[in-house]
C-alpha cells in the first residue's frame, strides 16, 4: 500500500509530540524513561510498554512500535550472577501490534510482524523480516536479510536485496502519515 498518500489522524488528547519529533501515546507505560533514548521521529502507539527501569533501551530514528507491544531488556547469566544488558534497536524498525521483544539487539530496517515474540538475548541483524506469530528462542542469532518464521523460529527465506531502501522509505512514510491533529 502507498503510505505516502494515506493520512491517519491521531487525537491530541491521546498522543503527544516531543521536541525530537517522537509521537508518543500519552498513556503508554514507560518505566524508567531516563534510561530510554529514542533518537527521534519515532512513533509509540497505544498501550505499548517500555521497561527502561531494568536497563537502558536505545532506539534509532523512524521506529514504529505498534499497539500493546512490550519492549524490555534481557539478561544474561554468568558464573558470578546475572547482568541486564542494554537493548539496542536500530533505525527504521517497524514493529507491529502485540509483540514481545526481549531481544538484546534488533538491527536497523527490520520489520517485525504482529504477535511475534523475540526471545531473551537474541540478536536480529539488519534488514530482517520476522513473520507474524513467530517465536524466536532465546540466545539465537539471525544473519542479515533473513525471513524468520515459525515456533521455534527458523530462517525460511531471504528478503529482497533492496529491503534497506524499501523499509527506510516505508518507515519514513509511516511517520509522516500519522498526524496529530492540532
Amino acid at each position: 500500500m502507498d503510505e505516502g498518500l494515506v493520512v491517519v489522524k491521531l487525537s491530541p488528547d491521546e498522543y503527544t509530540q516531543t521536541n525530537s519529533g517522537n509521537k508518543i501515546f500519552k498513556n503508554a507505560s514507560i518505566f524508567g524513561s531516563q534510561n530510554i533514548i529514542i533518537h527521534g521521529k519515532s512513533i509509540l502507539m497505544r498501550d505499548c510498554m517500555l521497561r527502561g527501569d531494568l536497563t537502558g533501551i536505545r532506539m534509532g530514528k523512524f521506529c514504529f512500535i505498534g499497539e500493546r507491544t512490550l519492549i524490555r531488556a534481557s539478561h544474561r547469566k554468568f558464573s558470578k550472577g546475572a547482568t541486564m544488558f542494554p537493548m539496542h534497536v536500530g533505525d527504521c524498525v517497524i514493529v507491529e501490534e502485540d509483540c514481545v521483544l526481549v531481544a538484546a539487539q534488533i538491527g536497523s530496517y527490520t520489520h517485525i510482524g504482529k504477535g511475534a515474540i523475540v526471545g531473551r538475548s537474541s540478536i536480529i541483524k539488519e534488514c530482517c523480516k520476522v513473520e507474524a506469530g513467530a517465536v524466536i528462542p532465546s540466545d539465537s542469532t539471525f544473519p542479515p536479510f533473513s525471513v524468520i518464521a515459525g515456533n521455534p523460529a527458523r530462517v525460511v527465506g531471504r528478503v529482497p536485496e533492496c529491503t534497506q531502501e524499501l523499509i527506510s522509505q516505508a518507515a519514513k512514510e509511516l511517520y509522516e502519515s500519522y498526524v496529530i491533529q492540532r
Binding site: 518505566f31 524508567g32 527501569d53 531494568l54 539478561h75 547469566k77 550472577g81 546475572a82 547482568t83 541486564m84
Partner: peptide, 19 residues
C-alpha cells in the same frame, strides 16, 4: 531448568530506585 535466583538479586537491587 535454571531458577531465577541471580536475576532476582539484580531486580531486588534495581526496583526500589524506580518503583
Amino acid at each position: 531448568p535454571e531458577p531465577p535466583t541471580s536475576l532476582l538479586e539484580v531486580l531486588r537491587k534495581v526496583f526500589p530506585s524506580y518503583h
